[in-house]
Design a binder for these strands. Structure first.
Lengths: 229, 229
DNA sequence: TCTTATATACTTGTATTAAAAAAAATACAA
DNA sequence: TTGTATTTTTTTTAATACAAGTATATAAGA
């Protein structure tokens, strides 16, 4: 008799893993910044052991790179690495929407329409955070509907790596109308089970995003140049 | 003055990681088997710390699953998880060969042809291990030629998970001719920069493989039933 | 002034120790 | 014999200790 759900136990290493990942994705830990174990241990109030285990996982996720006997640092995002990620994402997002065309039931479709509407209202409010959330929710619905656990995991991992830049991109509201438009087109293609069109819209969607993020990256590089040199 | 290349230093955790991964992929460690730290530490002659860090990485790769406060065990391969992996692999292998059509230079093409020939001779020898290696080499050439680091990493990870079953599959030599045939078709499509055909061949290739592996899985399940009950 | 040697402090890599939890075994009662 | 408590053992989790390697700063010599 209680609201206590599951007494959710999370090992410290996973708490640390989530914390560090969040800090990297939101830019609190900047690319190139060193991750020193004792320092992090003190900051988070734990010993070095869970820190190290968390870093091992971040390493495999590609968010940090290891230099032997020197330690870990936050991975740089280069133009090349961005393009590589986007190339893969494009293929997986296309796969996802094609599968969605086949596998979405009426319930899923209704829920997707709802997500579409939510995004529309978020556009009106001009609240960037809300917008970002509505956008993620919409895309998640598509990927989740495939029921493919591996696909879900990979897409989520790849999107996360872009998170920081995507957020910046959404701050610029000139693209909002178009995004809304594209979401609606995706929904309608899935409704018609029109794989080819759905795939085309997704590709266009990703291309736009890639372009915007690249612009963002270049801007940032200029900023650094101005402030550092 | 020596053959010693680079004094390649590998942290113990990576040695352990590679060792354990190999043992899982070759079936020495069986699905469901528990990975106990002290036991492994004794077996490999190291302390528990590098064992734990290696397990963290295997966990993220999906080769082991963690049960909190109970430890790690080798991940089960279910029919569903296999189909999920293959669905993703199909999309990524198609992407790879499409990119290869655009990006392979003359050198790459020659080297791919060579790999094709190597596979042909391996078929003649009927040495399964050699055959498996020649097969991997051929596919690696295609994926590597894309120059997309992320794609390379993901495909390699996904293939690895199938390794054990693929090996069994290659033991059955009825399919060897067809494999050889398909490799040649891939090479020729890339040579002609014919993306559509190349993609079709790859899809067929993966479908065959998936079917064979499923058969393998089902056989194994029957074996277990016979021997255990 | 620049290079090089050496000492020193810092950081990672590995092992060991201590604590907490779960699983297994045993004892006891119905 | 079966079901429930209690104890013991095993195993993970986390912290700490120690060893080994790396970078940095200072000082001597060219």
């Amino acid at each position: 008799m209680s609201m206590i759900k599951d007494e959710e136990y999370l090992p410290l290493r996973d708490v640390v893993f989530n914390t560090l990942r969040q800090e990297i994705l939101t830019g609190k830990l900047k690319p190139g910044e060193r991750l020193m174990e004792i320092h992090l241990a003190n900051k988070l109030g734990v010993s070095r052991t869970p820190i190290r285990e968390a870093i091992r996982k971040l390493e495999l996720e590609g968010l940090v790179i290891m230099i032997p006997r020197r330690g870990a640092e936050v991975a740089q995002i280069t133009l090349k690495s961005l393009q590589d990620v986007m190339e893969v994402r494009r293929a997986l997002d296309v796969l996802a929407i094609e599968l969605a065309c086949e596998r979405m039931g009426q319930e899923d479709l209704d829920s997707l329409y709802q997500a579409c509407e939510n995004f529309r209202s978020a556009v009106k409010t001009k609240d960037t955070r809300m917008l970002a959330e509505a956008d993620v929710a919409f895309h998640d619905k598509i990927v989740l509907s495939t029921g493919n656990a591996r696909l879900i995991q990979l897409v989520s991992n790849l999107s996360e790596q872009m998170y920081r830049y995507r957020f910046e991109y959404l701050k610029d509201d000139t693209s909002h109308e178009m995004l809304q438009q594209e979401h609606m087109e995706m929904y309608q293609s899935i409704l018609r089970k029109d794989r080819a069109t759905a795939a085309d819209v997704v590709r266009k969607h990703i291309d736009n995003q890639e372009e915007a993020i690249i612009k963002q990256l270049q801007l940032e590089k200029n900023d650094r140049r101005k402030s550092v040199y």
